[in-house]
């Protein structure tokens, strides 16, 4: 169980989340926050432990089709489990036709996460490319995002491990008022990383965020 627990809070971590398929209007800012649960495990393990984390961030529209942003992630539970993460992201609007319900955007992001538990630490550096597909439902939006990425897991005393990943996230941008939105989201990823006798690994993400 030590291994499972360590992996839950270790190399397995979800990437680039709480997104819409629409860029922030040029010159405007968007504050984001979220409570997430991230984790992972070998494919064959029936128990999928998740680690809660807090997220805050800011996005800014540079043009009508381009936004940039950043997020900070943390779980401050001392020696039991502490994570610190930073992520930079860009979103490029590919399609946003006023009369169409369907929006498309690319949201590449790169990040680094430091994960410590029981005095030992791991680091995860990642690059991800979600293909954000939005379906407007009235004022709200369903966001389906196929995603590819790669993570680099490192830890002192061990060799680095590369983890190519594919996954899918599903979110719902539930607009409340003029600028506020709640974003429940779930995602699952698959990586070829074998852990002991496993054939591969899975990663999971559950979260609820807000946009303002």
């Amino acid at each position: 169980m030590l291994v499972v627990a360590s992996l839950a809070g270790g190399g397995c971590t979800a990437m680039s989340t709480i997104k819409t398929a629409t860029t922030v209007p040029a010159g405007q800012n968007q504050v984001i926050g979220a409570i997430e649960a991230n984790g992972g495990a070998p494919l064959e393990l029936p128990v999928k432990p998740l680690l809660p984390e807090l997220v805050v961030g800011l996005r800014r529209g540079l043009t009508d089709r381009l936004e940039v942003g950043g997020k900070l992630t943390t779980l401050p539970l001392g020696r039991r489990a502490t994570t610190l993460g930073v992520e930079g992201e860009v979103k490029v609007q590919l399609r946003n036709v006023p009369w169409s319900r369907y929006k498309l955007a690319l949201g590449p992001a790169a990040g680094f996460r430091w994960i410590s538990s029981s005095g030992a630490a791991m680091q995860v550096t990642y690059l991800t490319m979600p293909f954000l597909t939005g379906i407007d439902v009235g004022r709200h939006q369903i966001v389906v995002a196929p995603e590819v990425g790669v993570q680099l897991w490192t830890s002192a005393g061990a060799n680095e491990v590369w983890a190519p990943m594919v996954g899918l996230s599903l979110g719902f941008v539930w607009r409340i008022g003029q600028r506020f939105a709640l974003v429940p989201e779930a995602a699952a990823y698959r990586t070829s990383v074998r852990i002991d006798y496993s054939e591969g690994s899975q990663m999971f993400h559950l979260g609820i965020g807000f946009l303002y």
Binding site: W153, I195, D196
Partner: peptide, 9 residues
């Protein structure tokens, strides 16, 4: 080290 169990860790 849990990373030892992963691929070439």
């Amino acid at each position: 080290n849990p990373l030892w169990l992963a691929n070439e860790g």
